[in-house]
Every structure is written in structure tokens, then in C-alpha cells.
Design a protein around this nucleic acid. Structure first.
Lengths: 330, 330
DNA sequence: CTGAAAGCGCTTACAG
DNA sequence: CTGAAAGCGCTTACAG
């Protein structure tokens, strides 16, 4: 591998000059610029990124921290981020935290050690101190779905509560009289908001109480078990709002096993709008988030922060959309 | 951040000594070792990994190149790799190539620049020259599902052809008389092998010809369209082998729309055994690959190669398993 | 406009 | 057993 010295010697200039030309900082004679570029091409020289990192404390790399890539929501999101990152010549570290505090911290440390230029994080266990630390170390961050928190950093989220309202209202509108919900983890802010959205619309019914809410963990499997639980508790249930699509898929399986016709005897609606939701049987109504776009925006915001660290933070809250399919059509 | 110099000064030794103690190379008095360790703890010193990379040409990081994380097969595989990597203190670069030659090459270059210690690759577009190049640059690699190729590098694959035979034979056994197949991309070796496995069992039937094979690309969507194609070409089709689960899911949707009862009028079997396959309606029979285990093995093999580069290469071919569920029960 | 020199934070022969 | 010194491949004040 050719080094900057090789280029410098062959071009008859100092390494400083080559460095300046590569990073076009400072000025240089058109002739030397041309000559250096020619040599660079001739030698196939590429700057050593590790050495660059060591001096510049930059790495041309950003990190994306997600709780799991097993929920297709995150791969879809990652694609949005990746596309923007790649077209800006940036690399991505994709990190799985399983929403475990220990793993998150480990990543945060090891990413800073590697001089990542910025971080996009979706994690329950992230707290304000973590963000402060990143900030004071000069590492810009964008959080996803953490906007509720009080921090002063850029974030993107969607209208979870409004989405849940939309879903619940829809079930009521099509004639459901006993509507259950499968919620997500208790410490998950998005799960909480979605639950409130549901409650907003059912709390005044006299049949309603806590027992209509089953506690899932956003996995397919938990959707399945939660639905069985609801069937047992409430044989008369005729509509369910699953707070993500994955759980709705598990729920569908339970409904089939229980012999409930969807949507006639049981109307179902999910949340997220992952690709898979259109391939279930019956196809799943859902609250569609602009997943890919969220990824793009997050990366764009991050790039802006990287370019100009003094930029003020920016909190975005995106709209969701009711996507009607057969699982709730009647 | 404390540096090695801070530690050295405070301990009254040279940085060389500290370095040796950290990496326990060479020898040192028990006393100095203890003292240095104490100071390290006191200062919360952690070696700068970038600086370490620059000198050692190592990074404690391996890379996993996959065609897409949108097929759940790869996230499941990644988890196996991740678990082994993490418990050995290694980081992972997860890279999406979309099976585009250009992206693959870019990654390969940029990963070498970052001194990754090893690479696990699943990619159609990877060729022997790429592997030779890695090898001559001293970067160990393990390929997944490329074993057919003639290279002399470690690889892991499963018995694709045998699996396809198992699937096809099963459909025949349960009484299917007109069996179609949805195959994967033409340049994909696994897709080709799975097709041969199917042909092995149907080629002698007088009804069989090429028109019973539809060409998909392993995506849900392509499964859907391919099935429609098969329905049009062969209204009498009564069994289908989809060469991956994702396509089988798309296929199921087409079957439902076409009003064919699964499994009674149309028996279906997929390939892979991804998590989702048990949540379809009806649950999907499939040829189960040991996905997570493949990931673990790949990482273990890679670790061995990293530790001892002179180790001989090792080609593994794992067994698959017929997983019977309702989509083919009759 | 350009170069000499110091520095980023480590590691590793070489000497003693 | 330990240290001085050179080196990994860059970047960046500082001087001219």
C-alpha cells in the first residue's frame, strides 16, 4: 500500500502539502495540485483511515444502535439511514443492544474509542446522562422515539398516541363493542403512549378495565400468548389493537387456532406498517409509520450536526397513517 | 482520557513496560505488574483502540457481509455470530451489500483499511480473486453458502440439494400430482442447488417441464407474483416447493387470493426455517437450516483462523431437516 | 504557497 | 526485567 510519503517523494513535495491537497485545506499552486493528484492516481494511493482517525479524531463512520434487528422495523429503518450515509461516503456500525443497559454502555464506550462521528440511537435504556456524555465528548447524536424525554438533543419520533387513537377509533367505527389491546413493554415510552391512545377511546365504556390490556414485548410470540390470554379473560372480545405488527402476526395465529374469523368475529389492527404486514392472512390493517423516511431524516439531521456541531437541536414528530386492510374490514 | 504515558509516568516506568504488561508480552516483576495494574485502575485507563490498530494492524473487529438484512434469515444468522464474537471481546461490522458487486468491493476495501481481523461473507458476487486478495493481505475469511466454488478457504454451507429433495419427495408422498417450484435467482448457487434437488424428484414425471419452475428472487413479493404465474400456467397445480420461506409467505397470499385451500388443494413447503414460518396461516412446512448454529460455527472457525493463520481451511456442510407443519399436512 | 517538526497513542525490536 | 528510540501513517500549527 502506498503511503502519503510515497506520494510526497514521487511528487517532490512534503507530506504536509499532499495532506493539504487531499483535504483541500489551505492553498496550493494549480500545478502542484495537478501533479500530486496525478501521482495519487498513478500509485493508487488511498489515505489510511486508521491513521487519519488517530490524528483527526474522526472516522467517517456513524453508529446505529437498535434494540434488535429481528424486528423488521429496524432493518427497514436501517436502510433509510444506510442510503443517506452511503451517498455521503459514510460508513455505519450497526449495533444490537437487546435493550440491555450493559451492552448499550459497552457500545457507547467502544464507539467513542473508535472516534465515530455521530450516533443514532433507539434504546429504552438510554438516559440523559449518556447523551450529555456524548455531547460533552463532541459526538452528535439523534435519538429515535425518545422525544418524550426531556433532553435537549435532536430526536425523531412519530405520533404514537394519535396513531393508537386512530386505530382504536377505527375499531369502534366498524362496530367493535369489546376491544382489547396488546401493549408493549412497560418501560417503553412508545408502548406507553400507544396504550394511552387506546385508553383515550375506551376508558369511558362501562365494560372497560385493565383486564382488556395484555402485556407483550413486541415479539411475535408474545402477541400469540397475549391473545390467548385475552380470549380466556374475555370470550366476547371482538376487536384487538396490537401495538406493533409483529405482535399482530402472533395474534392472528392465536385467532386462527381459537377458530375466530378475522375480521368478522374479530377485527385486528397493528402498528408500524412493516413490509410483512401486507402478507399475513388476512392482510393486516395497521398504523403506518414512515419507517424508511425516518431513517433518512435521522441520518440527514445527524449529518448536519456533524458538519456544524453548534447547530441547535431539532425535535421532529412525524405523522402516522391509518392503513386499512382486510383484517379490519367489515 | 488517560493515555499510556499518564500511566507510565505515574507508575514510574516507561510506556514500553506498560504496553508489555497490558498485552502480557515479555516479562516483568510481579511488583511492577501490580503497580501498573493499580494505576491503570486508578486512572480508568483504556488503551486507545485506534492507536493500537495503527501499530498492530489489528482491530479486534470482524465484519459480516450479507446481501440484505431484510430477509430474517440474516438477522438470525447474525445473532449467532454476534453472540460468539461478543463473548470473545470482538466487535462486528455488519455490512449490507445488496449483492451488488460495487458495494461488495467498496466494503472489502474499506474493511481492510480498517484492519478488520477477519471477514464472514455471504455474497453471490464474491469470487475467488477477492478471497485470494484477502488471504494474501493476511485477513482470514469464512464464506457462507459458497462451498461449491473451488476456493481453498473455510466455508460453511448446508445440504441445499438434499433439502430440496426432501421437500419435493414429501410433497409427492402426501399425494401431490402436479408440483411446481419457485426458485431463487439464477446466479445464486444455493438457488441452483435447490432447483436440482427438486428436479431430481420430478424430472421423470411426464407432466414435468420447465414451465413448472417460476423464477423468483427470494423476496416475499416475488413469491407472490411467481405463484400467480404458476396458477395461470397450471391451474391444476396441487403442490409447490418455494425455495425460501419468504417466497412461501408471498405464495400463501397468492393462494388465498386465488381461493385455493392450503393444504388440501395446494400443499406448500418452504426452505430456511426462519422464525416467521411458524406464524403464517397455515403454519409453514419448511426445510429447516440450523441458522443460528451456522452463525456460531462460522464465527468459531473464524476465531480459530485469526488465532492461528496457518490453520488449514475447513469446509463444513451441515444437515437440514424436514419440518412438518400444516401447510403440507394431509 | 510550502516545508520541517511535533504530535495523535500505541508497539516493538534493540540494547543493556 | 526494563528503557530509549523509532515507527505506524497521517495532520496541523508555525515559520518562512
Amino acid at each position: 500500500m502506498a503511503t502519503i510519503r510515497d506520494v510526497a517523494e514521487k511528487a517532490g513535495v512534503s507530506t504536509a502539502t499532499v495532506s493539504r491537497i487531499i483535504n483541500n485545506k489551505g492553498q496550493a499552486t494549480p500545478e502542484t495540485i495537478a501533479r500530486v493528484h496525478a501521482i495519487i492516481k498513478e500509485l493508487g494511493y488511498k489515505p489510511n483511515v486508521v491513521a487519519q482517525s488517530l490524528t483527526s479524531k474522526k472516522s467517517n463512520t456513524i453508529a446505529l444502535l437498535v434494540p434488535t434487528i429481528k424486528n423488521p422495523f429496524f432493518p427497514e429503518l436501517a436502510r433509510g439511514i444506510e442510503d443517506v450515509a452511503n451517498s455521503n461516503g459514510m460508513n455505519i456500525f450497526l449495533c444490537n443492544t437487546d435493550d440491555e443497559r450493559v451492552k448499550l454502555k459497552n457500545y457507547l464506550v467502544s464507539l467513542q474509542e473508535r472516534y465515530v462521528d455521530g450516533i443514532i440511537i433507539n434504546s429504552l435504556t438510554l438516559n440523559n446522562e449518556d447523551l450529555d456524555e456524548l455531547h460533552s465528548n463532541g459526538i452528535p447524536s439523534v435519538t429515535l422515539d425518545r422525544s418524550i424525554s426531556t433532553h435537549n438533543f435532536s430526536s425523531i419520533t412519530v405520533k404514537h398516541r394519535e396513531g393508537a387513537q386512530l386505530a382504536t377509533k377505527h375499531l369502534i367505527d366498524i362496530g367493535c363493542r369489546r376491544i382489547g389491546m396488546i401493549r408493549g413493554p412497560e418501560d417503553d415510552i412508545t408502548a406507553v403512549q400507544r396504550m394511552w391512545g387506546y385508553r383515550d377511546y375506551v376508558k369511558d365504556f362501562d365494560w372497560f378495565d385493565q383486564s382488556w390490556i395484555a402485556l407483550g414485548d413486541f415479539s411475535v410470540q408474545s402477541g400469540y400468548y397475549c391473545m390467548k390470554e385475552l380470549f380466556q379473560r374475555h370470550p366476547d372480545i371482538d376487536g384487538v389493537f396490537a401495538s406493533n405488527d409483529l405482535m399482530a402476526i402472533g395474534l392472528l395465529k392465536a385467532a386462527h387456532e381459537w377458530g375466530r374469523k378475522v375480521p368478522d368475529e374479530l377485527a385486528i389492527i397493528g402498528f408500524d406498517g412493516i413490509d410483512m404486514s401486507q402478507y399475513t392472512y388476512p392482510p393486516l390493517s395497521t398504523i403506518k409509520q414512515p419507517i424508511y423516511e425516518m431513517g433518512k431524516m435521522a441520518m440527514e439531521d445527524l449529518l448536519r450536526l456533524i458538519k456544524d456541531p453548534k447547530l441547535d437541536y431539532n425535535k421532529r414528530e412525524l405523522d402516522v397513517e391509518l392503513m386499512l386492510r382486510e383484517s379490519s374490514m367489515r
